[in-house]
């Protein structure tokens, strides 16, 4: 097998098309996971034991099964279930599957952020007669979320690297295009190298950015919470 620069150059624009799908899918899954993460937090805080156990158990179950299995389930098995079964297009199925899977991680991040807020903050806001919604919005979340931003950023990178799983249910992104190219021309090394390069090109700067966020928010938090 020989390395061909011509193939390498040729394949760049082809794979580049898939890059946008990968990036778009990552962003969509990530937003879904960020928002849906609050759903788990909310459910596990319902003061009725059976409900919050049930949801904790479901989240734990999703977290400890492979995302690939969940993708297959949503795409292949769900449509076959009577009544609630729906056939989804691959892109939507990928957003749901990966989004739900990662929402069980973001919810843990949120939970740790919320638990890190001092009990006295709740009590002071009760003493000032804030409503439950006002406590969350003005006191708890503004303190719980900033320190989790670096961790949430890491999940963005992790998700970016997991998104190629979507090619298994037919989302035509970088990996899929590389594979097709390979199958057509019996050239796998160049297209796959391009895929790897694109991933590197995106994740490395993101990792640097997240490192900086980490510094920034840790400092900010130190300054403001040294003592209340």
């Amino acid at each position: 097998m020989t390395w061909s620069w011509d193939v390498f150059i040729n394949v760049i624009p082809i794979i580049f098309k898939g890059l946008w799908i990968t990036v778009g899918l990552t962003i969509a899954c990530y937003l879904f996971a960020m928002i849906f993460g609050f759903f788990w937090v909310f459910m596990s805080r319902i003061p009725w034991r059976p409900v919050n156990w049930l949801f904790r158990w479901i989240a734990e179950f999703i977290r400890s099964t492979p995302p690939l299995v969940q993708l297959f389930f949503i795409y292949y098995a769900w449509p076959a279930i009577p009544v609630i079964g729906v056939t989804l297009n691959p892109f939507v199925a990928a957003i749901l599957g990966l989004g739900i899977h990662f929402s069980t991680y973001t919810s843990e991040v949120y939970r740790s952020g919320i638990e890190s807020v001092d009990k006295g903050q709740w009590e002071a806001s009760t003493a000032l007669n804030l409503s439950t919604a006002q406590k969350w919005r003005h006191i708890i979340l503004p303190q719980a979320i900033p320190p989790t931003i670096p961790m949430l950023g890491n999940y963005l990178i992790i998700m970016f690297k997991e998104v190629p799983l979507a090619s298994t249910i037919g989302v035509v992104a970088m990996l899929h295009l590389a594979n097709d190219y390979g199958a057509q021309y019996y050239k796998y090394v160049e297209p796959l190298t391009v895929v790897a390069l694109f991933f590197l090109l995106l994740s490395y700067p993101s990792a640097l950015l997240i490192g900086r966020l980490e510094k920034k928010y840790n400092r900010r938090f130190d300054k403001k919470t040294a003592t209340l």
Binding site: A127, L128, N129, P142
Partner: peptide, 30 residues
């Protein structure tokens, strides 16, 4: 509860708000 106020041993100020914002929050939103 509106008639009752409390000052805590460990202050429990809101660390993400300035002194002025700490004082303004409850009258404004409650």
């Amino acid at each position: 509860r509106g008639d009752i106020g409390m000052v805590f041993q460990h202050f429990n100020l809101f660390p993400h708000m300035t002194i002025l914002e700490n004082c303004m929050l409850a009258p404004t939103i409650v």
